[in-house]
Amino acid sequence: MSISVSNISKSYKDVKALQNISFEVNEGELFGLIGPDGAGKTTLFRILTTLLFADEGSATVADYNVVADYKKIRNNVGYMPGKFSLYQDLTVEENLSFFATIFGTTIEENYDLIKEIYLQIEPFKNRRAGKLSGGMKQKLALCCALIHKPKVLFLDEPTTGVDPVSRKEFWEMLKRLQQKGITILVSTPYMDEAELCDRIALLQDGKILEIDTPQAIINHYPKPIFNVGANNMYQLINSLNDYEYNHSVYPFGEFVHYTDNRSDFDPKTLKDYLESKNLTDVVIEKTVATIEDTFMELAKPSFSKTSEHNVK
């Protein structure tokens, strides 16, 4: 077992950042923590990288206990905190060789591991990190986290604020690193990235909503889900929200994802209802749920407590 977390809880003053979190990550697995800001992702990362003590529970990383063997863990993990922690006033090359030095290694020694990524930023090796674009900073930060050939790699929101192209390239890199035997724990607020992980944990308000493979999570979605489209998005959303049988109404791209709370739901009745609201071009077709649908379905109960309101 590469990472094992059991019953971890952590509070800051009266905010419960993590509540009774347990999960395990296998060796060589690409495991995703999926959740919005404030879900507790960073706190969990800090506990696992020995930067924070948990209030309760225990955890091991690479079979070392995060409290007792913290020194060993610090030698064996790579950590990339949120917001790409680099020295802005050092050049690309200086950053990399600095991190190599403090881990007691050199760029040459582990060059084959980072080669593929580093080649993309090498043309800018004399540029200061502060002047790089988001995508390049991200790649440099990844190189820095890998330079000592860690067994476990912790990546806290590595794709936040980065454009879709760089995000895609980044995930391709992670897949290749995984093939080299590195266990990767990665967090992201982008639900569409969840499908790229082997297994994921959905996290909201410090609680795990579900842990499974992305496919299994999608399969677990409890209701038939429909794409609803019409000529006017705004009126469509309002009409659906006013519809007495609705279970959930969420805009998704050009459609609205709709679920009904009747077991014998007939799309025809909905179509009639919408047309009675002066909507035209009404389309209703069955679709498959996404991770995001599941997330919202699971997050809904806790959500309605904090925000009962909806736009009228």
Partner: peptide
């Protein structure tokens, strides 16, 4: 909407639709 949870993100967009309307 960077970093906002998916439900709030949608509520946010509903506000945008409303304003545009």
């Amino acid at each position: 909407t960077g970093g906002v949870d998916p439900i709030t993100r949608r509520q946010f967009w509903e506000l945008i639709y409303k304003a545009a309307n």
